[in-house]
């Protein structure tokens, strides 16, 4: 997996993680408007990155579109990737 692909995938993972956090928080604070705004901002960013990645490298889930052959099964799979060092905080 080349550098640009890992980098874009890790950006998706990073924003995806922010969404996991806002999701759990909103489950127990469903009327917190600031948290909702934060969630919606990340949601928009996530969808943009997700679409950019899929159109370049193929779908990350089976519901996505693919060129031929079926790009979803192309390696490396998530446990095989050599990730770049990252500092999320």
């Amino acid at each position: 997996m080349d550098y640009n692909q890992v980098k874009l995938l890790q950006e998706i993972m990073e924003v995806g993680f922010a969404l996991i956090e806002t999701n759990l928080y909103l489950d127990t604070h469903p009327t917190d408007e600031r948290a909702l705004m934060l969630h919606n901002t990340h949601s928009r960013k996530y969808n943009d990155l997700y679409n950019r990645y899929s159109s370049k490298y193929g779908p990350l889930t089976y519901t996505g579109m693919s060129r031929c052959p079926w790009e979803y099964i192309q390696g490396p799979w998530p446990w095989e990737i050599e990730y770049e060092k990252c500092h999320w905080d």
Binding site: M13, T61, Y72, E82
Partner: peptide
């Protein structure tokens, strides 16, 4: 459930 072909966090060893 839908599988997403990514880890939650980049696992380095």
């Amino acid at each position: 459930w839908i599988y997403e072909k990514k880890l939650e966090y980049p696992v380095r060893v």
